[in-house]
Design a binder for these strands. Structure first.
Lengths: 200, 200
DNA sequence: GCTATTAGCGAACGGTCGTTAGGTTAAGCT
DNA sequence: AGCTTAACCTAACGACCGTTCGCTAATAGC
């Protein structure tokens, strides 16, 4: 039959598994993700799937990590070209909203879904979610600070409050897109962000 | 041993089950809710538990219904005393935020958690979530319309946009409370709502 | 007192879960 | 050519899943 895979190809298999797992977890949740179902989808055995990770929890962490990396490559990386502060933030949120709209169930949307799923379930997965979210809010607050310093936002601006409200807009957009399939959601989110950032 | 329960008491048992199920589902999700675990918590048999509902899905719907009823009794019911429009809305959101803060994991917070959990999983549970959410947004938009009509909000106000942003604030509050346990979240949410409603 | 009803139990059902052990086969190195 | 490594398999494990089946026993209506 088909020849055995070379060592270089095993990483590709791992990626293939994570790809499928990410799609599955987007629909069923990270806990609803099942090794058996994954194996069926990939036409592999359960042992062949889990052999790449060691345990289901390790698989969950790998999937989460892949989602975060994908998000980072897609959203903030496209905004680094913009001037730090208000401009970069506006671009970041534009990219984020577009990312959520183009594929319902990956990346940023996925992270907040997992955050909701694991908010009452302590453990390594929850810790990883908190870490990723912490990195993100640090980035946002840093840019907001720059925006205040460069005059893009008024001097007395409460950066923490603004980050809180921007987070709310994204959560609302995610719900409107994934749950209600509202085609107007991206435009509403953009308008909300523009108002919060002073409509630059 | 203990005497058998009268018919009047069986409804109490049902309530006891739903109470426990609501607590469990708040931590583990509505799908992570398990009849066996529930039976252990209640010191009952699995058959005794499921006998009151017929199936797990029926139990899930009953739990969801109980959460919605509890929320309705707690939040909007306490705001009917306020004048329709801006005042009533401000009171409603105040009550909602207080409700989320006092018990992490019930009512409004619970509904949005389930909404996230089932957003990619069609079926009766998702339909029930959409119905409850629809009733709620209809109420909010109605009050917003009244606020515009009575001058509490400017004439050209985009009611749908405002409802979208108010929803975002509540989602952000829920995440800050349940996931980050941020004690400042309620105050931030109140401030955001006040700004959206024109700080009355 | 007799009977019908029903809440709840114990036990078992077929399935699926995550995980492990052992075997097979191909690739890479010496 | 022989040996090691590792990817992937089949098979099985015990645990738990939701559900169904009688059964017991207490109540309610007669």
């Amino acid at each position: 039959m088909s020849p055995r895979k070379s060592v270089a190809e095993t990483a590709a298999t791992r990626d293939r598994i994570i790809d499928s797992a990410l799609a599955l977890a987007s629909a069923e949740g990270l806990e609803g993700l099942t090794i058996g179902r994954l194996a069926t989808d990939l036409a592999m055995s359960k042992a062949g799937v889990i052999g790449h990770f060691g345990s289901k929890e390790a698989l969950q962490l790998a999937v989460l990590d892949a989602a975060v990396r994908r998000f980072t490559l897609r959203v903030p990386a496209r905004a680094v070209g913009a001037r730090p502060g208000t401009e970069r933030l506006a671009r970041t949120y534009d990219e984020w909203i577009a990312y959520m709209a183009e594929r319902e169930g990956h990346g940023g949307c996925f992270l907040t879904s997992v955050a909701t799923e694991f908010d009452g379930r302590p453990g390594p997965v929850r810790d990883a979610v908190l870490a990723a979210l912490g990195t993100w809010t640090a980035y946002v607050k840093d840019e907001l600070g720059t925006a205040v310093a460069t005059g893009g936002l008024p001097a007395g601006t409460d950066v923490d409050q603004l980050a809180f409200e921007l987070g709310g807009v994204v959560l609302a957009a995610g719900q409107s897109i994934k749950l209600h399939h509202d085609p107007q959601a991206p435009e509403r989110a953009r308008r909300a962000v523009a108002r919060l950032l002073g409509a630059p």
